[in-house]
Structures are given as C-alpha cells and as structure tokens.
C-alpha cells in the first residue's frame, strides 16, 4: 500500500496555488490535511501526477467573526476549529459536528476546507455548511467567487470547483441567541463516516412558534441535502410530536440514499426519519 509516484510542489499562498493548478491542469491535486487523499493514494485509487501542498500557506488560515458571520479559513485545522471559543459560540453546531469527524488525530491534521472540497456525502462539515446556508469563497485565476453551500456539492467527491480553483474560506451566519442546535449521527463506530447524520437548528419566537428552522442530512444522497420540506413543515408552527413526526417523514421522503455494506438504502431512509425527529427534539431541548 505505497502511493504511486508524483511530483511535489509546495505553494506559498493561495495565489501561487491557483497558478500551479493552472499550470498542471487536471493532473494536479491539492494536498491539505491529507486525511482523505493520502489513503486513496496508498490504495492507488487516486494517482495525481502532481501534488500541490498548501500546508505552508498562511493566507487561508484564521477563524474570525465578520458582520454577523463566522468566517473560517480553508486551512483552519479541524481540531483548532473544534476548540475555538469564538466559533463554538457563533455556530454551536461546529464543535458538535466535528466531534464526529474522525478521531482527534485526524482532526489535528485535517482541514476545514479539505473536508468541504473532498465532498464526501457522509462527512459532517459539508452537511453542516448546507444546514447553515453557508457560503464558500472560491479563488481562481480571475479572482474570487462566492458559492452557496447547496450549489457547491455536485456529487460524491465532486464540487463546483474548477480544476484551477481553490476553496479559500467559508462564511456561516451567526445564529440568533436562543437558537437550539443538535447533531444526531448514526455511525457504526465512534469516528466513522456517518450512516446518516442530521444537523438541526431551531429558534422559537416569543409565542413558541418556530421562526428559524435549519435541517440537513448527510449520508443519504449523492451530496449532503438541506431538508427544505421538513423545515417548511415546522416553520411558523409550534413544535409538537405531530409536527416533528411529519417533518421526519418529509425528510425521509426527500432523501435518496444508496446501499452499501453498512446499510441498505431503505435502512438509511428509515434512519433519516428517526434521527431528524431526535435532532429536532434535542435542538429544542438545547436552546
């Protein structure tokens, strides 16, 4: 299980990264934390002829608040993000979701942007971005563009990133105070990719009616999915067992999972129903 040969280039910043990507074209891959790419290379399932290492770059790090948003640099290590007090307060889903992302050793090296760009449909961070309606900042030869999270993920391991573009950061809206959040994940073992994961955020107005509902699921389609139908069921209403069940059913109906060795499509769909209901209840309880 030794990787195939490749040419190694280390980029100094995002601009140089884009230049190198442009120079090498489709043969090049960006090496960030390496927690997903390198296993694929060791299995010889990925064989880029050039690796552009961005671990020495300094312009894509940083976690800061900006105008009601949390802005996270693509090179922020997942473990740093998980323990960052600003991030945890602004988006409580972050530490909760990251606790399910591999093990601490993976998160030590693994980057925020790397997980998004890798676009595993069962990974937590993509589902979180989709749930939060996050926006991704993508840099290419002609400058940067902003991509809404729901438009960023196209298929398993496929995003809208062009061959010569790099994800540099993402923005997540800060949730109003009093918002309850929850991550419910079913995985075979702690740290495994989710069979199904659900991210939920719920805010109630003074009359106890939901004025903010965010729901997304991972592992149940070719990309993480925002559960709009389920959100609609809940929005503007009181959250009781009837509406939660209806939302859970709507969520299950909206998912299109496939079979794999850890669970059939129908099992996954069932689990969406179970976990969505649990996540909503937990989010309400966590307010």
């Amino acid at each position: 299980m030794k990787p195939p040969p490749f040419e190694y280039r280390s980029a100094h910043d995002s601009t140089e990264t884009v230049e190198l990507l442009t120079e090498y074209g489709d043969d090049a891959k960006i090496l960030a934390g390496g927690q997903s790419l390198v296993p694929l290379m060791n299995f010889r399932m990925a064989r880029p002829s050039v690796l552009i290492d961005i671990n020495q770059t300094q312009d894509m790090t940083g976690i800061r608040e900006d105008d009601g948003h949390l802005v996270i640099g693509a090179m922020a290590r997942q473990r740093v993000l998980e323990r960052d007090p600003t991030a945890g307060v602004a988006v409580p889903l972050l530490p909760a979701a990251l606790a399910h992302t591999g093990h601490t050793t993976n998160r030590n090296r693994g980057t925020f942007g790397g997980s998004l760009a890798h676009a595993d449909p069962a990974a937590e961070l993509p589902a979180l971005l989709v749930a939060m309606g996050g926006e991704l900042t993508v840099k290419g030869p002609s400058g940067t563009r902003i991509v809404p999270a729901e438009d960023f993920f196209l298929a398993p391991l496929t995003t809208t990133l062009a061959y010569n573009e790099i994800l540099v950061s993402a923005r997540l809206p800060r949730l109003p105070s009093g918002t309850g959040t929850a991550v419910e994940e079913l995985a075979r073992r702690h740290g495994d990719f989710a069979i199904v994961s659900v991210m939920a955020a719920v805010h109630l107005d003074s009359n106890g009616r939901a004025d903010l509902v965010r729901l997304a699921a991972g592992g149940v389609d070719s990309t993480p999915i925002r559960l709009h139908e389920a959100e609609s069921v809940l929005s503007g209403g009181t959250l009781d067992e009837t509406s939660i069940d209806a939302a859970a059913t709507a969520a299950a109906d909206a998912s299109h999972p496939v079979d794999d060795v850890h669970g059939t499509a129908s099992y996954r769909r069932d689990m969406v129903r179970v976990l969505v209901a649990r996540a909503i209840r937990s989010a309400i309880a966590n307010r």
């Binding site: 073992r189 702690h190 740290g191 495994d192």
Partner: peptide, 16 residues
C-alpha cells in the same frame, strides 16, 4: 469482497 479496508471491516475500538 466489499470490505477490504479498515473503513469497512470494523474492528471494535475503545468506545465499543
């Protein structure tokens, strides 16, 4: 065989 990795052949870990 569809389980020829430690991602799919699941050895129990300390939390299991």
């Amino acid at each position: 065989i569809n389980t020829a990795s430690f991602m799919d052949y699941l050895l129990p870990s300390a939390t299991d």
